[in-house]
Design a binder for these strands. Structure first.
Length: 883
RNA sequence: GGGAGCAUAGCUCAGUUGGUUCAGAGCGUCUGCCUUACAAGCAGAGGGUCGGGGGUUCGACUCCCUCUGCUCCCACCA
């Protein structure tokens, strides 16, 4: 069989993915095996794959594939999230481009467009995940707005409402004037923003609504809201302003009279010490307003424009109004000064619009009890966060969480199952029919037409927090007393959750709450928090910067295995990933290395007449030990979620140990056959190595594993058992390491003296050197004869391996002066080293306090360096004598 | 403003109870090689006062304090 010199991923990947699907290798059903479960962090249904997904899903896939090979019943549930704000705004934008305005549509018409959009673009991302090799159980694919999942969401709402956890009220909320909806506190991002600090004169009223010549100065960043001012507030302890007590002042431009009030909230040192109180448009002012019973005047509409209550600048956008009112105030003589100012401003996570604090009627879920349990789940270790530095962050959040605003003024999502009676009373029920029954208890004779359902939908996270439950059993969410179905009973709790720290609170914490509430158990045992993928310069990947490569292009160019390896190479848990295409090149190179090692091995011809050479026998024993050692290390890394360390161990095992040393040691001469024993061992090693690599690089390993032997239909490397470590002698490994050092020493001499690798050299040894590994040295260093060093070795190049001296006789090629200089430098080093070791040993406090083992090590250092010094001195003497 | 974290080779990072010659890895760099698996490769080499300062200890990359620089999270000083 002829294999090309380079691995071609494109040809093999689709073939094997199709094979895996045909054979339903990814599908899982409950059985007697131990389950291993992961639910995918559901990507936005209309999203497309980006580098963050690649990292996340590669990690998920590695864990699932490893668990599967460990003999567990592995199940990775895929699906998508309806992402109400993101999707709705995409649909709105698309309609707008077609000249259709959302306002002109009925709810039903709009939803029809939205579903159309979802059918067209939904799930693209799932097919992209297939390209990456994700071994999801596609038969279990879910969508957060599937009818039964939506039903679970509604049941959950009804459940918490009846429990008294859900209430409705007018609160100051974060209003997104672009998304036209309220958003939760967690969806607001504060960024320092440069703006202006306007110092405004408010003239004191004479009591008749006319200005006197006295005035006070307030400082504000939002002059466009002055028309909504309800008072001016000073600190009662601020003597500068006691003269203002009981006075009234006039709002500039509109001459409205407002009182001066006192509240200790006001910082005397900040600004001018006078605060304008605008209850409708600032959270703190709202609180002050409640304390002082101030009227609330809302002058900004849904779109962030001034409404008619503002009296002036009606219809202007709030930022245009700010610019215009500055001029107006200046003209009117009310503008004292304007300073540059930087302050944190809230932006909408989804639309990047500046959040407008706004009063509105919203639904809330009480968080205190839920948060308390969810905190306990992490504090007690029932849920482990990896890395655990996130425990602090988590605790802080859970201890300071505020009630969750769960209503959104959108159409795309689960509509809140609250129904209003004509008199404004509300009933909450799963269906309109049930709602009507409840309504009749309040209003006998009510008919369906009397009920009006709440217009709002629920926050997306109000559905995704049920995900680990609802993907298995849609009845259990909302019904803590229900008996879980067989899937849920088997797969829940899931094992690991891999996700980004940015949704630790949005999603992870809330899933823990829902799990505790409905399952009385946490939804997962380990939460592996990845870093954020950044570019080489540390910048976040973003469309506007154009620094985000398309993963599909990368897969096409380098292969999925290369992309997977490239991502994992640089990913340790919790720290950000600085992506660079060179890492993916490295992945591709590794594929090629595996490919060519395979070509070499399978190109060998077994000759039954050939005896196993000593070098091969040693190498086989050694590599068997090395393999076991590496498996132990890899298992340890996996158990601690050190995925990139596990990967690097495997990478070096294959490249350095297997290819650079083992294969070179057993490689038959050109054209010669190989003995059966070595060949079989080599094939066995290769088989084990492929299995070890498979979770990370599924495609190439399947390709080669299938190629290695005749496989029957339905066989796959992905269902093979992961190699297990055997007993091994550590001495074998250290002896072989000495052989490698000896080989490197000889090669180094060749390099220095410009001696071709083809030219044979002699080797002489003085001191202890494991004789068992000498055949390997002879072969790899191309040695003609090896023996004890005897007599004058001054005409030889000398180097040391551990405490042994090795000589390569080189008549006429040795520069005695140069050798002498090197030896004297060595001598100097070891004498200093010895001196420091002896200083330590002569310190009684050291010998008295340090553990025996540590002292013994120091003594060994002492005797070793003494031996080295002696041999160096001898070498110097003999060199000098021969001169 | 509060909290957390980071600082180790040119770059990205390991360093898991303070003690094996512990100062490491990968990549990059430099030198020599188209050696019959692989130039996407082979062989070799160089490279760091472990951010600065102080302390504890027989012993500190590791523990404590402090300074400097960066990052993230939380937060209603207009």
């Amino acid at each position: 069989m002829e294999l090309p010199a380079k691995y071609n991923p494109a040809e093999t990947e689709d073939k094997w993915y199709a094979y895996w699907l045909e054979n339903k290798f990814f599908h899982s059903e409950p059985d007697s095996r131990e389950p291993y479960t992961i639910v995918i962090p559901p990507p936005n249904v209309t999203g497309i794959l980006h580098m963050g997904h690649v990292l996340n899903n590669t990690l998920n896939d590695v864990l699932v594939r490893k668990a599967r090979m460990d003999g567990k019943n592995a199940c990775w549930v895929p699906g998508t999230d309806h992402a109400s704000i993101a999707t709705e705004s995409k649909v709105v934008a698309k309609l707008k481009a077609e000249g259709i305005s959302k306002e002109d549509l009925t709810r039903e018409e709009f939803l029809r467009h939205a579903w159309e959009w979802k059918e067209k673009h939904g799930g693209i991302i799932l097919s992209q995940l297939r390209k990456l090799g994700a071994s999801c159980d596609w038969d279990r694919t879910k969508f957060t707005m599937d009818p039964d999942l939506s039903e679970a969401v509604i049941n959950t709402f009804v459940y918490f409402y009846n429990k008294g956890y859900i209430y409705r009220g007018v609160r100051m909320v974060n209003w997104d004037p672009v998304g036209l909806t309220a958003v939760s506190d967690e969806e607001v991002i504060h960024r320092d923003t440069t703006s202006k600090f306007y110092h405004l004169r408010y003239y004191i009223s004479d009591g008749q609504g006319n200005p006197t010549d006295k005035y006070l100065i307030i400082a504000t960043t939002r002059p466009e809201t002055i028309m909504a001012d309800a008072a001016i507030c000073i600190n009662p302890a601020d003597e500068r302003y006691h003269w203002l007590r009981g006075k009234k002042v006039l709002i500039p431009l509109i001459n409205k009279e407002i009182p001066v009030i006192e509240d200790s909230y006001v910082e005397m040192e900040f600004g001018t010490g006078c605060l304008k109180v605008t209850p409708a448009h600032d959270v703190n002012d709202y609180e002050i307003g409640i304390r002082h019973n101030l009227p609330v005047l809302d002058i900004i509409d849904d779109h962030g424009c001034l409404n008619e209550k503002a009296q002036i600048l009606v219809g202007e956008d709030r930022f245009d109004a700010r610019r215009k009112i500055e001029d107006m105030l200046r003209e009117a003589g009310n503008l004292e000064k304007v300073e540059a100012y930087t302050s944190p401003v809230g932006y909408s996570e989804r639309t990047n619009a500046v959040i407008e604090p706004r009063l509105s009627m919203q639904w809330f879920l009480k968080m205190d009890a839920l948060a308390k349990d969810a905190l306990e789940s992490v504090e007690s270790g029932k849920v482990k966060l990896i890395p655990d530095k996130y425990r602090n962050t988590y605790r802080h959040w859970m201890e300071n969480v505020r009630d969750w605003c769960i209503s959104r003024q959108l159409w795309w999502g689960q509509q809140i199952p609250a129904y209003y009676l004509p008199d404004g009373q509300v009933v909450v029920a799963q269906t309109p029919e049930k709602a009507l029954e409840l309504a009749r208890e309040i209003m006998p004779g009510a008919v369906a037409e009397d009920l009006r359902q709440d217009e709002d939908v629920l926050d997306t996270w109000f559905s995704s927090w049920l995900w680990p439950i609802s993907v298995f059993d849609t009845n259990k969410a909302g019904h803590p007393d229900a008996v879980p179905n067989s899937d849920l009973a088997y797969y829940y709790p899931t094992n690991d959750l891999v996700t980004g720290p940015d949704i630790l609170f949005f999603w992870v914490a809330r899933m823990i709450m829902a799990g505790n509430e409905f399952m009385n158990d946490v939804p997962f045992r380990n939460v592996y928090l990845t870093g954020i993928v950044r570019d080489k310069l540390g910048r976040k990947m973003s469309k506007t910067l154009g620094n985000s490569p398309d993963p599909l292009d990368l897969i096409e160019k380098y292969g999925a295995d290369a992309v997977r390896l490239g991502m994992l190479l640089c990913s340790s848990a919790g720290s950000d990933i600085l992506y660079d295409e060179s890492q993916i090149e490295q992945g591709r190179n590794f594929c090629n290395k595996i490919w060519n090692a395979y070509r070499l091995v399978t190109g060998w011809n077994v000759d039954v007449n050939v005896q196993q050479p000593d070098a091969s026998a040693v190498a086989v024993d050694w590599f068997r030990a090395k393999l076991s050692q590496a498996i132990c290390t890899v298992e340890d890394h996996f158990s601690k979620f050190r995925i990139s360390d596990a990967l690097m161990t495997i990478y070096k095992l294959f490249w350095d140990d297997f290819c650079a040393w083992y294969l070179e040691a057993v490689k038959p001469a050109f054209g010669a056959g190989i003995d059966k024993e070595t060949y079989n061992a080599t094939i066995g090693f290769f088989d084990a190595l492929l299995k070890m690599i498979h979770p990370v690089m599924p495609f190439i390993t399947e390709e080669l594993w299938q190629n290695m032997a005749v496989r029957s239909e339905g066989e796959t490397i992905m269902n093979q058992r992961y190699p297990a470590a055997g007993e091994y002698r550590a001495e074998l490994i250290s002896d072989f390491a000495m052989a490698c050092e000896a080989v490197a020493g000889v090669r180094n001499i060749r390099q220095q003296k410009n001696i071709s690798p083809k030219e044979q050299l002699e080797l002489r040894i003085k001191g202890e050197f494991p004789s068992g590994v000498l055949p390997v040295v002879v072969k790899l260093a191309n040695i003609s004869s090896v023996g004890q060093a005897e007599g004058d070795m001054s005409a030889a190049q000398r180097f040391m391996v551990s405490t042994a001296e090795l000589f390569v006789p080189l008549d006429g090629l040795v520069d005695l002066g140069e050798e002498l200089r090197k030896l004297e430098a060595d001598l100097d080093y070891y004498r200093n080293f010895l001196a420091s070791v002896r200083r330590k040993l002569s310190n009684e406090r050291f010998t008295a306090n340090a553990p025996e083992a540590v002292v013994a090590v120091e003594r060994k250092k002492e005797s070793d360096s003494l031996a080295k010094i002696e041999s160096i001195e001898n070498a110097i003497n003999s060199l000098k004598n021969s001169k």
